[in-house]
Design a protein around this nucleic acid. Structure first.
Lengths: 97, 97
DNA sequence: GCTTATAATAAGTCATGACTTATGAGGATA
DNA sequence: TATCCTCATAAGTCATGACTTATTATAAGC
């Protein structure tokens, strides 16, 4: 999950696909890397369940995977309360001044 | 942000610090890597504003940074609606069957 | 059928980054 | 002051992974 989104190029591809379903060639046209690089990134994103692919003739259309970001959000929420607790502590400490 | 959380060891350190503020030595005791490795990871986490450090005598106590996860949540929320839209499309497509 | 477009895989290169050991600096304790 | 912790930095090693070009497979159009 995090590994899949950590690379800037791959994250850019994901954001683009999330905004609008796209073929590999379209992505390759606009991104500053080669077509194989795009395919490799899409493979990683697909394995992370962040994108889906769908055949359309010779094209292969990639779109965001609805399942994808759930685990990330779940992980984030686990720390949200702890973060707030820590923030509260900071505020209280500041109040002690 | 993503890069900082992509490494499993570093993520484990972050989760541990998030649960309970801790010194470097404490982390080094429980984690399966050396003390310098811990320090290096903490440096990365600190630069990503995910943890804070605080001097306590010779010790240095690390805790979660309240500011840290905000940007990640903001990024995630940007795609949440798109994800739902995509999911809706999937459902509607399924309904067409 | 032959050419063209699309996309995946193979193989190889090169930089990055996650570790290690060694060392030094700063504070506590006797 | 001498010793012991605690932690950061330096330097070097090694694996991973993000690219490239070359190639192959499949579908579309003439």
């Amino acid at each position: 999950m995090f590994a899949a989104l950590s690379d800037p190029t791959r994250r850019a591809i994901f954001e683009r696909v999330a905004g609008q379903r796209q073929s590999v060639a379209e992505l390759a046209r606009v991104m500053p890397v080669s077509q194989p690089a795009i395919s490799q990134h899409l493979k990683v994103l697909k394995e992370a369940r962040l994108v889906r692919d769908e055949r359309s003739g010779a094209r292969r259309i990639y779109s965001i995977d609805p399942e994808g970001l759930g685990p990330l959000r779940a992980w984030l929420d686990r720390f949200w309360t702890e973060q707030l607790a820590a923030f509260k502590t900071v505020v209280e400490t500041a109040d002690d001044t």
